[in-house]
């Protein structure tokens, strides 16, 4: 057994090889659903030729929402909930360069009123995560990450049906800068990302925001994301608290008793926890659980979300080595 030693002594690098934290949050497609895992937002890397893949379930619901800045409920919607099943993967192109992807299937529903829920495959996303700087001093580590991402709808789902459409329909590009500091098992990670969002085509020929637009094209505001996470890391357990802020760079408020619209200014501050447990008995198998709560928002639901997932790491290096031995 050539791989046992990997777990024997915990180091920052060894953790990289095995770890992958997840949290499920409604970041890119906000109001409608929980959207996608922000796997690119943690300071964990896969080693070269390692492939981590898994499946994640997420549940997301809200009863109260912010109509502009006014917090209210809506008896004609009751509780709006969405469920997602996501297939995800992370491949180590190099020790410090990873390729990540996720594909979610989402379904939405409202507990009251007559509006039908929607379901379908939402937006596929890929990220390149690069760690150009890693400094070790004693038991302290400092590392810098640059993450580039892109996402786009994989199906022609109905966009203009908030809050029950499964996504917002824009193609997004993101750039994120992330800093990570670790001392012993304790760590803190801070990152900021900017999302460039494409225009969206809707089924209507005209729509009103704060004025009439005689076009099917909706201009989406770009968005900023700030993410802070801190906690404890070891080879078997990662436990962290997460504070996240999503801020639209523009957009307008829902008018009184109106329906939400794609280009609303959607903001949210969320607090949550995330944990990952890696089995020592079955090598490469890990479980993930998380929960998030929206503290404050604008033109969004006050979401409570939770998720759970199972992941497995395939080490193509090892396979190669075993093959060499034969």
């Amino acid at each position: 057994m050539i791989t046992i030693s990997l777990y024997k002594t915990f180091t920052h690098s060894a953790l990289r090889k095995r770890g992958w934290g997840f949290w499920v949050g409604a970041t890119m497609a906000l109001l409608p659903a929980l959207a996608q895992a922000q796997t690119e937002v943690d300071a964990i890397m896969m080693n070269k030729n390692n492939f981590c893949t898994g499946i994640m379930y997420g549940h997301n619901s809200w009863k109260n929402y912010w109509e502009g800045t006014l917090k209210r409920d809506n008896a004609n919607l009751g509780t709006v909930s969405s469920q997602a099943i996501m297939v995800m993967g992370n491949y180590g192109l190099k020790d410090n360069l990873n390729l990540l992807f996720a594909v979610p299937y989402i379904s939405t529903k409202a507990s009251a009123g007559t509006l039908a829920g929607m379901s379908g495959i939402q937006d596929g996303s890929i990220y390149l995560k690069w760690m150009p700087v890693e400094i070790k001093k004693g038991n302290q580590y400092f590392s810098v990450y640059g993450i580039a991402g892109a996402s786009t709808p994989l199906t022609n789902y109905v966009k203009d049906y908030l809050p029950l459409s499964i996504g917002l329909g824009s193609s997004n590009f993101s750039g994120r800068l992330m800093l990570d500091y670790q001392k012993g098992n304790w760590f803190a990670t801070a990152s900021a990302a900017y999302f460039l969002r494409s225009k969206v085509q809707i089924d209507r020929a005209a729509y009103y925001t704060t004025q009439m637009h005689y076009t099917s094209t909706v201009q989406m505001p770009n968005a900023l994301n700030l993410n802070l996470r801190a906690g404890w890391r070891s080879s078997t357990l990662i436990a962290e608290a997460v504070l996240d802020r999503f801020q639209s760079q523009g957009g307008f408020d829902i008018s009184r008793n109106n329906m939400p619209f794609l280009s609303n200014q959607m903001n949210a501050t969320r607090l949550g926890v995330n944990a990952k447990y890696t089995l020592t008995s079955i090598e490469g198998l890990s479980f993930i659980g998380n929960a998030m709560f929206t503290l404050e928002g604008r033109n969004m639901g006050q979401t409570t979300s939770w998720g759970a997932g199972i992941f497995y790491i395939i080490d193509f290096n090892r396979k190669q080595k075993s093959d060499d031995k034969k």
Partner: peptide
Amino acid sequence: KPKLAWAILCGGLLILAACNKSLND
């Protein structure tokens, strides 16, 4: 190693620059 990442990042930015945000009203 950074070369690939830089190439992708720059490529993405170029695509974005080409995304004209004006609407044909």
